[in-house]
Simulated assay, not measured.
Amino acid sequence: MSKKSQKKTSKTASGSPTPRKSTAKTTAQSKTKSAKTQRAPAGTSRKTTAKAASHNAASKRLKSSESAPSAQTNAKAALSEGQKAPAFRLPRDGGDVATLSDYAGKKLVLFFYPRADTPGCTREAIDFTRLKDAFAAAGTAVLGISADPPKAQEKFRDKHKLGVPLISDERHEMLEAYGAWGEKSMYGKTFQGILRTTVLVGADGRVAKIWRHVRVDGHADAVLAVATNL
């Protein structure tokens, strides 16, 4: 081999490590950039997720605070003595319609009972029927109200020969307006239903007296005594 060939071969041999070193350095830089690129989205994703979670939690708190009525609001919404009696227009037994305006200028007793033809409700309706003439003498009309349909009210009336009009409030509109619809409990279970309540409306159209959680025995007589002295 000539000296020129040996020098050329030597240069080639000695120069070969240089490209390998450059390639390794380039690969290392590429890996470093790739690692930084991969880490960045991960950090961004965590921040974005944390921000989204915080936003969702705030939204839930806001929604809860807006939708949940306070105890003070509920207290203000409840019917109380001295307030104007809520208007109503509902079907009654016999196919007629009963309205508050029908009794304008008169005293009016509204007794709300849970269900037609049940023992307590039957006794209460019979007691008000027994005192019908005494209420009339005191210038007071009497209406019974439940959520039973008109046909059930008529059957109840005919079976016990009731002499007071019976109103059907199947949609609970009047019951709720007069505070006679709410939470009840029986056999360890709670549910929404009719609360036995009686409301006496004065001739001025305002609520004169409210009896809540009524006990049937002697109740009609107690209501008559208040209506007579009103």
Rank of each mutant, 00 (worst) to 15 (best):
A35K: 15
A35H: 15
K36S: 07
K36W: 11
K36Q: 15
T37F: 13
Q38D: 09
Q38E: 01
Q38L: 10
R39K: 07
A40D: 02
P41E: 11
A42F: 09
T44F: 06
T44I: 07
T44K: 02
T44V: 07
S45T: 05
K47E: 05
K47W: 05
T48W: 01
T48A: 15
T49P: 00
T49M: 02
T49F: 05
T49Y: 13
A50R: 15
A50E: 14
A50L: 10
K51V: 14
A52M: 09
A53F: 01
S54D: 09
S54I: 05
H55G: 08
N56M: 05
N56T: 13
N56L: 06
N56K: 13
A57C: 05
A58C: 03
A58Y: 11
K60E: 10
R61F: 03
R61A: 13
L62F: 06
K63G: 00
S64V: 04
S64K: 04
S64T: 12
E66M: 11
E66I: 08
S67N: 03
S67P: 02
S67Q: 15
S67C: 04
P69A: 08
P69G: 07
S70W: 04
S70I: 08
S70K: 14
A71F: 05
Q72I: 12
T73Q: 15
T73P: 01
T73C: 01
N74L: 15
A75C: 08
A75H: 06
K76G: 04
K76V: 03
K76Y: 08
A77N: 09
A77L: 15
A77T: 12
A78S: 12
A78L: 01
A78N: 04
S80F: 10
S80R: 15
G82L: 08
Q83E: 11
A85K: 00
A85R: 04
P86Y: 10
P86W: 06
A87Q: 06
A87M: 03
A87G: 08
A87I: 04
F88I: 00
F88L: 03
F88P: 14
P91L: 13
P91F: 14
R92G: 10
D93G: 13
D93L: 02
D93W: 01
G94S: 04
G95M: 05
D96W: 06
V97K: 13
A98S: 04
T99F: 02
L100N: 10
S101T: 02
Y103V: 01
Y103C: 03
Y103A: 02
G105V: 11
K106Q: 11
K106R: 12
K106E: 01
K107P: 00
K107R: 13
L108P: 09
L108D: 07
L108G: 02
V109P: 02
F111G: 11
F111M: 08
F111V: 04
F112C: 02
Y113P: 09
Y113N: 08
P114Q: 03
P114S: 00
R115M: 12
R115F: 12
D117C: 07
D117W: 07
D117S: 13
D117I: 01
D117E: 13
T118P: 00
T118N: 06
T118R: 06
